[in-house]
Design a protein around this nucleic acid. Structure first.
Length: 333
DNA sequence: AGCCTACCTGGGTC
DNA sequence: AGACCCAGGTAGG
């Protein structure tokens, strides 16, 4: 019974668009905010076709929405056996119905209510810890555009080619063992990773030494605080990135990554005494995190992600607005 | 414990 | 053109 089901899935994966989910209009999924909202850096949007292409689990995916359906296609994979539907359900946490939490958070907090009104359907992804960790090492003190290009470089140089789709080669995210090799640091320097080169190679070596993927699995079974503390033993992982990993790939949804944006949000709206500080100290960091946890409860990290996305969106809109009157953006020659 | 600063790089601004 | 400035931080002082 199981077998025939997975065979069916496998066949369906290869052929054409398949449905992974039908959702209700009051509990939608918004792919722009979810896939381009700074959780993952590997998804691209074809605006003409309104299709998304990306890689996770050594597999190339195309996604699109049609009415109230989330549709997918697999364009190649290094995995022998695929249960596409199960993989996507896990990735998007489709076993979770979030609308009740959204309602509760809106009732509790005006800022959340406003954010949510502008921005329905953000989902907290459940990513793979290895990709998540090294992507967010790249993210420190960096722009999203450069983060994305660095992540792609990691894949091109240390991952495996999966397949070529529309003349573009897609690569898997490298195994942690590959990144742990001593020569990796120099190579990454050469590729323009700057000081992050050392962080990547050294933390990879530590992870391998401590058990690789098994070590990550053990972090899921720990409490949030213990997992966070373990992660921060890695060279190049501080409080912020540790919280990103806890939240995005270790199922600790009370983690609140406090970056400059979240600090701004907190100081502006909730904790006025923190305004005008030069940088976020450990103490302030904990205070901000605790504030959100008290406000939103055990899934505070998901609520935080919605606030974060709303803030990003506002920034983008501001840029677009200020762009219009000038109209000098077109470059000549 | 808490505050300060150097750190790679590239894209944007003036 | 060329100096800034800044970006989803962190280690080391």
């Amino acid at each position: 019974m199981r077998k025939s089901l997975s065979t069916t899935n496998k066949r369906m994966c290869k052929m054409s668009w398949s449905t992974v989910l039908c959702y209700h209009h009051d509990d939608p999924i918004q792919l722009v905010g979810t896939l381009n909202g700074g959780q993952s850096f590997r998804w691209t949007h074809d605006k003409e076709k309104d299709e998304w292409t990306g890689v996770f689990s050594k597999t190339i995916w195309k996604l699109k929405q049609d009415g109230h359906h989330l549709l997918y296609q697999v364009k190649g994979s290094l995995l022998g056996e695929l249960d596409c539907s199960r993989m996507l359900k896990k990735y998007f946490r489709l076993n979770v119905t979030i609308k009740h939490s959204y309602k509760r958070w809106s009732e509790k907090d005006e800022l959340f209510k406003t954010a949510y009104q502008q921005l329905h359907g953000i989902r907290m992804l459940h990513q793979e810890p290895v990709e998540n960790l090294f992507s967010f090492i790249c993210s420190q003190n960096n722009h999203i555009s450069r983060i994305s290009s660095m992540v792609e470089k990691l894949c091109e140089h240390f991952g495996e080619e999966i397949s070529i789709v529309d003349d573009v080669a897609y690569y898997s995210f490298p195994e942690v063992e590959k990144l742990a090799k001593p020569e990796v640091e120099a190579k990454l320097r050469e590729l323009g990773f700057g000081y992050r080169a050392k962080f990547i190679q050294k933390s990879a070596a530590q992870i391998v030494e401590w058990g690789g993927i098994e070590w990550f699995n053990s972090l899921q079974d720990m409490t949030y605080k213990d997992a966070r503390q373990e992660l921060m033993k890695l060279y190049g992982i501080g409080p912020k990135v540790a919280d990103c990993i806890c939240l995005m790939s270790l199922n600790h949804l009370e983690a609140i990554p406090v970056d400059t944006h979240v600090y701004q949000i907190a100081a502006r709206n909730y904790l006025p005494h923190l305004r005008g500080k030069k940088n976020v100290t450990e103490k302030m960091y904990m205070e901000i995190g605790d504030h959100f946890r008290n406000l939103f409860g055990e899934w505070a990290g998901w609520a935080h992600t919605v606030l974060f996305c709303a803030d990003l969106k506002k920034l983008q809109q501001k840029e677009n607005d200020s762009e219009e009157p000038k109209q000098k953006k077109k470059r000549k020659k």
